[in-house]
């Protein structure tokens, strides 16, 4: 084993982790049946760190996101934001949550969609508009400011959804498989775009993906999750230099990680 990997199931919790999830479980009850979505999950994200969650489909990754975003309540366990214990209600509004679907509002223009979070925060219209258009300009999308989502391509919609998330909260992003539905080329462009965005905002990111190569390309650390109920199988540090390019995936170190991740995931894949 080289120094790029740690085989411990629980990462050492940093002193001032942006987020630390400790022993979080979730059990759904419907009538007499109970469904366990999360068996104790522990993970942490340092400030400015890019962390990926990878695991078989339906393993409970989205449930974990809902809990972190303050949309759902865990059955047990605790979540700390910047070292402070939080309940569900306190977590709502503290993270930028981007669901799988872009969920742009069709009656709002691109600019108005980007400023949705500021509207919720009751930022004055004019100021919100200025911030939204500054952000669009910075990421080369100003020419689409007055378009409606129906007139945009799938990749463009994801960019807008990402900017909406960033404008609401750039310091901590939860991205639920944002590029899952895109074709390979668009996907690659957006991965690079996200890397730029992450670096310019110094955001802490948790990124859900099914794509092993995508996880290696973008992450500082990868949590491999088990099949439902999800728990952390292994934590893998990705020590490739930054900024990364597609070619970096061909390096021996990256290929070794890819093989390791794949062999772990294949075992978890339900037949």
């Amino acid at each position: 084993m080289d120094d790029t990997q740690t085989d411990t199931p629980v990462a050492p919790v940093a002193q001032h982790a942006r987020l630390s999830v400790e022993g979080v479980t979730k059990i759904y009850r419907s009538g007499k049946r109970t469904v366990e979505a999360l068996s104790p999950v522990d993970l942490s994200v340092a400030p400015g760190e890019f962390v990926s969650l990878i695991g078989p489909s339906g393993c409970g990754k989205s449930t974990l996101f809902n809990i972190i975003a303050g949309v759902d309540t865990p059955t047990a366990g605790s979540l700390l934001l910047d070292g402070k214990l939080t309940n569900t209600n306190e977590r709502a509004g503290k993270v930028g949550y981007m669901p799988q679907q872009p969920l742009l509002l069709p009656w709002r223009t691109v600019e108005e969609n980007v400023m949705l979070g500021l509207d919720v925060r009751r930022v004055p219209r004019k100021e919100a508009q200025q911030q939204a258009s500054a952000l669009l300009k910075r990421f080369g999308l100003l020419e689409f400011a007055n378009s409606y989502p129906a007139d945009l391509s799938g990749g463009m919609r994801q960019r807008i959804a990402l900017l909406r998330t960033v404008l609401f909260n750039s310091s901590f992003l939860l991205l639920d498989e944002p590029f899952g539905a895109l074709d390979a080329l668009t996907r690659f462009t957006l991965q690079m775009w996200l890397q730029d965005l992450w670096q310019s905002f110094h955001s802490s990111v948790i990124f859900i993906t099914h794509d092993v190569r995508e996880a290696i390309l973008l992450s500082d650390r990868i949590y491999v999750l088990s099949a439902r109920p999800a728990s952390v199988l292994r934590t893998i540090e990705v020590d490739l230099p930054r900024p990364r390019r597609q070619e970096d995936l061909a390096q021996p170190q990256a290929l070794r990680l890819e093989q390791e991740l794949l062999s772990l995931l294949v075992k978890e894949q339900p037949l």
Binding site: N66, A69, G70, V71, A92, G93, V95, Y97, P99, Q100, Q101, L103, L116, G117, D119, V120, R121, F168
Partner: peptide
């Protein structure tokens, strides 16, 4: 209304009226 959209609003801490 798409329940996912409501989840998004909830994550932004939007009130019912918002």
């Amino acid at each position: 209304t798409d329940p996912e959209l409501m989840k998004l609003m909830q994550s932004m801490k939007a009130t019912r009226w918002q």
